[in-house]
Amino acid sequence: MPRSSSLNWQDRLFRWACLGFALLILGLVAALAVELAWSSRLALRAFGFSFLWTQVWDPVREVFGALPFIYGTLVTSAIALLIAVPFGLGTAIFLAELAPPRISEIIGFLVELLAAIPSVIYGLVGLFVVVPWVRSVASPSVDAVLGWLPVFQGSPYGVGIFTAGLILAVMIVPFVTTVSREVLLTVPRSQREAALALGATHWETIWTTILPYARSGIIGSIFLALARALGETMAVTMVVGNRPEIHPSIFDPGYTMAAVLANEFAEATSNLYLGALIEIGLVLFGITIVVNGVARLLLYRLHDTSAVHV
């Protein structure tokens, strides 16, 4: 709408200033991508794509392969999703379908609080509570039953891939729950009433009608949680064991991309070493952009219609 006052120079100045700040954000993100690629050029040139699937990480001989970190990141995140999705979705269904609005509000707030707790505090509790528990209870008892499978072989450490996955699970439940709950609340009343009118029980209505209707949004929430898990640093660094090795058992120590950055970045002595670490940052950046992008595509419709901003 053309407005006479917008011809005013003060208005134009203000508009340009706001635009400038907005463009600064665009510039920052572009600079971030360019800088990561540029700063890792030494490693990119030295190792090429084999960086992604070689296993040796030896700063002394300056041989760098990122596979153990990529493996650790993917497996810890997968374990986190396996635990967090059922609990998160179950909670979301309870909040959206069963709980009275007042209770739903309160529990929703409490679940969001889980997301507000700083990562380093999760690491602290993980280190002093979860690690001893895994060492003395979880690992031996799983080993006793399923130990014949290499994946579940026990280990005497307590720190390891499973411990990290377990803590990540708690950290990402709020993302699954909060977003899924909003998605479930957008399912039209008519869908639900149609199923109930056909004689479906409450659960059958949820299972056959509401969940399928909300499917893309729920998957979106899962991807959103996955992106968080992939990039999570402190809590994982404190409990994953920090060994650049790939072991078959989930109870063995491992390493993740974010954790190696946290541990080794400040001490990286040579340019190639630093380049290799920054390349890991670049890979992490790329993966999280893709996963977040998928989440956004799936949640796009929702984004326009409700109060969810992701």
């Binding site: 993100v29 971030l32 990561l36 700063s39 990039g231 950046f285 952009i289």
Partner: peptide, 20 residues
């Protein structure tokens, strides 16, 4: 595009911001 960049920035792992 500004909204998109904001979303991307929100999703960047904090450790990567540290590298930056």
């Amino acid at each position: 595009w500004v909204r998109y960049a904001t979303d991307v920035l929100n999703g960047v792992p904090s450790i990567v911001i540290g590298i930056f």
